[in-house]
Amino acid sequence: MSVPNFPPPRDIDLTNPFWEATDQGELRLPACSVCGAFQWYPVPGFACHPEATRHWREVAHTGTVFTFSKVERAFLPFGSEPPYTLILVALDDVDNARLVTVLVGDDQDSVAIGSRVELSPTVFETHTLPTFRLSA
């Protein structure tokens, strides 16, 4: 099993705060600066509060697997060596947002929908990928 190493774009204001946070070991998602509602993925404006700005709120480092797939083909132009296991994580205490990520750890073949997972970052030279592992 591997973890794709495909550096994210770092020059886009709409998305880069996510990667600045992961470099610090944090997990932050964009939210309305007035009411705190998460907006994932970010779009230019907030329907709840038109006057709001985008505030990157720290979120839980734990969650539940919503769905998963063991990817056995390479689709990225470079940086991936299948197989690897993708999971979609419903983060604890975050409504209306799921995190796309990669499952790490020797026990990953036992993943199932509903499995509990926790943050276990993978550090590359260019970026830190907020990968997750199965919780004990």
Partner: peptide
Amino acid sequence: DPVKAAFEMPFGWYGQPVYFAMWAQR
């Protein structure tokens, strides 16, 4: 798509077969 390039591709969540496989699993 900027959000897909930023929040999906770096994880290898890329290629339509991958998206639909996750849905099939669910």
